[in-house]
């Protein structure tokens, strides 16, 4: 059922999903870039160390891992924040648009739980699609960026495992954000009195 209503409002869902794609891909990109730089650092290859220094990373002699600069972290957090706000806005719109539909369902005996479930399921589908795409796009961008910057020499030391786990984390974050964004609109929809919902003109 949720799938259908996504299809019916395909374009709008696409916009919501795109917000997620962008935010998650940014998150994945920055994290995976760090993963790769980490791997280069750990590889103990002086050539890599020099390249890293050249490309602007600050390495102290006894560092074993690099971390994102505070500024970079801020940007990631901000992008995620903007994404949540965007999702809340989009879902609120979709609730208002479906006032009558929700009212009808409540008249027919739908429990509050059911209404919440519809919206949560819709959001998790969008969240999943958006996050997976986002993580994929971000991962590809980070990897190809690294190859472009550091040359193909880094391929043997590519930290595949780290990249995968980082992507998984980014996907999880994306789905979490999507659910977080839908919670308030869904609860608002479920709490609505059917009479009030029916009174709204279409």
């Amino acid at each position: 059922m949720s799938y259908k209503s996504i299809r019916a409002r395909f374009f709008r869902s696409l916009v919501t999903t795109m917000t997620l794609v962008l935010a998650v891909s940014f998150l994945a990109f920055s994290q995976i870039s760090i993963d790769i730089a980490d791997a280069m650092l750990v590889s103990d290859n002086p050539v890599f160390h020099r390249i890293l220094l050249q490309s602007g990373y600050d390495i102290l002699p006894d560092d074993v891992s690099l971390s994102a600069s505070p500024k970079q972290r801020w940007i990631v957090v901000l992008s995620l924040l903007v994404c949540v706000v965007g999702i809340i806005n989009a879902q609120l719109m979709s609730v208002t648009e479906r006032f009558r539909e929700i009212g009808t369902m409540k008249c027919l005996g739908a429990l509050d739980r059911f209404i919440v479930r519809i919206f949560v399921m819709e959001a998790s589908m969008q969240g999943f699609a958006g996050s997976v795409t986002g993580a994929f796009v971000g991962g590809i961008a980070a990897c190809s960026g690294a190859i472009f910057r550091f040359g193909t020499d880094i391929l043997p030391i590519f930290p595949w495992q780290d990249i995968l786990s980082t992507s998984a984390l980014a996907i999880g974050t994306g789905i979490g954000l999507s659910l977080l964004g839908v919670l308030y609109p869904a609860i608002m929809a479920a709490r609505m009195q059917p009479v009030e919902a029916m009174r709204v003109e279409q």
Binding site: A8, E101, G109
Partner: peptide, 26 residues
């Protein structure tokens, strides 16, 4: 309570509206 009301609406009462109120995507 809300749960029993939903049950009542679901099993005891059938509604027909002036504006039909079918779910358009179904």
């Amino acid at each position: 309570d809300a749960y029993e009301l939903a049950w009542l609406r679901c099993r005891k009462i059938g509604y027909i509206f002036q504006t039909f109120n079918l779910i358009p995507v179904m």
